[in-house]
């Protein structure tokens, strides 16, 4: 049996990615701006609930407050990565 052709595999993967993205675009186009904005609210509440449930399950705890503390720490780490080098506490002297 011949080994898989890497170029063909990459092309198939790209076609699949484009197809998934295309469906997302077309779905969003069918929505009104208000419906899309409503989705942001709904998705956000849902994702936080899932993060909380996941943290409690992973830590094996039933205390909801503890679960939110874990979520908070994880989000803080994510923000550190996302904002790295983007913010400083003071303006440069030349701009003050």
């Amino acid at each position: 049996m011949n080994p898989p052709d890497p170029d063909l595999a990459a092309a198939e993967l790209k076609a699949m990615q484009d197809s998934i993205y295309r469906e997302k675009i077309l779905r969003a186009r069918r929505q009104t701006p208000e419906e899309r904005l409503a989705d942001v609210f709904e998705l956000t509440n849902s994702v936080f609930t899932r993060m909380h449930e996941g943290a409690m399950w992973q830590a094996g705890i039933s205390d909801e407050r503890q679960g939110w503390d874990i979520v908070r720490k994880r989000l803080a780490r994510l923000r550190q990565v996302y904002d790295a080098g983007r913010f400083v506490n003071h303006l440069p002297a030349a701009l003050q």
Binding site: I25, R36, D39, V40, L43
Partner: peptide, 8 residues
């Protein structure tokens, strides 16, 4: 989200 693909 208002103009693109809604995300959380």
């Amino acid at each position: 989200g208002l103009y693109g693909i809604p995300r959380s």
